[in-house]
Computed example of a mutant assay.
Amino acid sequence: MSLPSSSTPDRIPARGGVGLKAEHYRTIVEQRPDIGFFEVHAENYMGAGGPPHRYLSAIRERYPLSLHGVGLSIGADRPLDQEHLERLRRLIRCYAPGLFSEHLAWSSHGGAFLNDLLPVPYTGQALARVAEHIDQVQDALGRQMLLENPSTYLAFAESTYSELDFIAEVVRRTGCGLLLDVNNVYVASTNQQCDPFGYIDAYPLAHVHEVHLAGHTQDADDKGRPLLIDTHNRPVDDMVWDLYAYAVARTGPIATLIERDADVPPWPVLKDEADRAETIMVAAQTKAVGHAAAR
């Protein structure tokens, strides 16, 4: 890996950002678009050298980075993979991202790695395991980790905590931060017939450092009820934009990422979504200032 010009993390601004995709490397390097930050999946850059690192190094010289992991398996009922954690530590030392995040999920069992992010039962045992793993990660990396709320389709009958209480207790025990995925909130709330706005109201918003926005696929279950699948393969849904506006009215402007992991469109399409997020942030802040002045 080639080191970027700065080994000090750049603060992620309260602006719109985009997930970095190979399809857009050359456009970004050559055109230097006005964008707040880029986010990369850690596992895509754990190899040694090659074009991905050359492009990422060039982009890191000009933009802050957020690093998003999908392979630590924080919720797994097994020890963390220390080799994976060491690769992650080296990657963070190399690129000095402003933020690092992972999922409240598990994706490994025995010696197998599963190509999915699977839900965690909200029990005391799972809480202790997740907290222990986050402590290990933060100690190894020497920095705070952000934990992302999951997209879920069913609830575990054995759960003894609500999702919100579980997440709040993880934060209390570990001091980790949070990544609020608004699309995940909408997907899970629709699938489990809950109020997504009530979820935002009860979320530990003071600990949120980054927001994700993405698209989903609409389907139906065997009873004909709406079923949303977290596919990241289409534009952000209008209902997710509405929920995002509701959230940022409470958080204030915050680093907001547009995620697109399949059917990746041309760069201007994603840039327009990042710009829309910034417009919503400005409108929410203006409204808040107006309300304060009227008091």
Rank of each mutant, 00 (worst) to 15 (best):
A42T: 15
Q31M: 04
A262S: 15
L146A: 12
E278N: 05
H41C: 03
D272F: 00
A48F: 06
S6M: 01
H41P: 01
E210H: 15
F38Y: 12
P97W: 13
L141W: 07
L243C: 11
L141F: 07
G36Q: 07
L228I: 09
E132K: 14
V70R: 02
Y55I: 00
H24C: 11
P268W: 10
T256I: 04
D263F: 04
A96V: 00
Q31R: 14
N233C: 12
I200M: 13
T123L: 06
I280A: 08
V130L: 03
H291W: 11
I59F: 03
P79T: 06
W106T: 00
R276M: 12
V182T: 06
P196R: 08
Q218H: 13
G36Y: 08
F100H: 11
P266F: 04
A220F: 10
L72K: 05
G71M: 13
D221C: 02
R93V: 01
H84N: 10
V18I: 15
S189D: 03
H209G: 14
Y199M: 13
P150W: 12
E23G: 05
G17C: 04
P253T: 03
A277Q: 00
K223S: 11
S159T: 01
L67D: 04
A131C: 15
E43N: 13
H207T: 05
G71K: 07
G198H: 05
I258V: 13
Y55P: 01
S189I: 02
L243D: 08
E132N: 14
L67E: 09
P97C: 14
L141V: 05
N184Q: 09
C94P: 00
H209N: 11
H216N: 13
G215P: 02
R26H: 08
N184L: 07
P33M: 06
V171Y: 02
F156I: 06
G47K: 10
I12C: 03
H133A: 05
G75T: 06
D261T: 02
S151F: 02
G110L: 10
A14M: 07
P52I: 11
R89I: 03
D10T: 14
D275P: 00
P119Y: 07
A292K: 14
A155Q: 14
E30W: 05
R89C: 04
R60S: 15
H109N: 05
E273F: 02
H24M: 10
I229K: 13
